[in-house]
Nucleic acid binder design. Sequence first.
DNA 1: CCTATAGCCTGACGGC
DNA 2: TGCCGTCAGGCTATAG
Length: 265
Amino acid sequence: MPELPDVEVYRRRFEQTSLGYEIQAVEIGEERIIKGIAADDFRSRLIGREFAGVSRHGKYCFAKVDQQTGWLMMHFGMTGYLTHIRSQQEKPKDWVVCFTFDSGSALVYASTRKLGHLSHVSDPGDFIADQKLGPDPMDRSFSRETFLGLVTGRKGRLKTALMDQSLLASIGNVYSDEILFQAGFHPGVKISDLGREQLIAIYEVMGRVLESAIEHGADPDRLPADFLIPHRSENDHCPVCGGPVKRVSLSGRSAYFCPSCQPGA
DNA sequence: CCTATAGCCTGACGGC
DNA sequence: TGCCGTCAGGCTATAG
């Protein structure tokens, strides 16, 4: 569930459960999830040390390792998540990497499809620059003017732009659908079809959707009643008008929308 | 610059 | 019950 709200929820979980304990063991269930560094090096950079803080940029998490120059980097792919367990018996079936602390508890990176990756980076800022990630929309400096500057004059669809991590890092297929739904635009709408006032409205909706989702733990069952996300399947009902939800394929991804609340091409 | 496709992986679901 | 195709919230590489 790894778009900005989900990753922020994992970041907070990490921060609340796993800082300040000595890492006693690092088990790696699937070595291919570790990228850019040998598994043994990855382990030895962590064992005997502590996590001192966790930050996030877009869909990436960075954990500072104390007494070290580097950081643990995590990306969650399509199915990755973080969970904190009190004992090894609680390890989920799809666990991939397990960081066990001197307290006996552990932080587990789990993922069914294992499309994400973990690595070690010397500096998150450099990593973000190297990956050519755009700004994070939850960052304080991300203003309305920042957003207008990024999208104004761009060709192509608004949905594609919202999902473009090099333009702004954070939003994926699900939340771009939610933003379009809340703003009342068809998923196929082009940026060139939108005026400044409409783009400002989209900026405001984006902020509200992301904040609200984080507030509700990014859990589809707890999101506000007017959110489309829990109804993202063909012929489910629109939470606002009750009409059928439809699906269209765009750029190889499925976009779900309400034809009556989001009219247009 | 833009769009579309395939591939990486595994599991759930519906139809027969 | 089993088999088969489709689909799933990410990203990258490639081709047009």
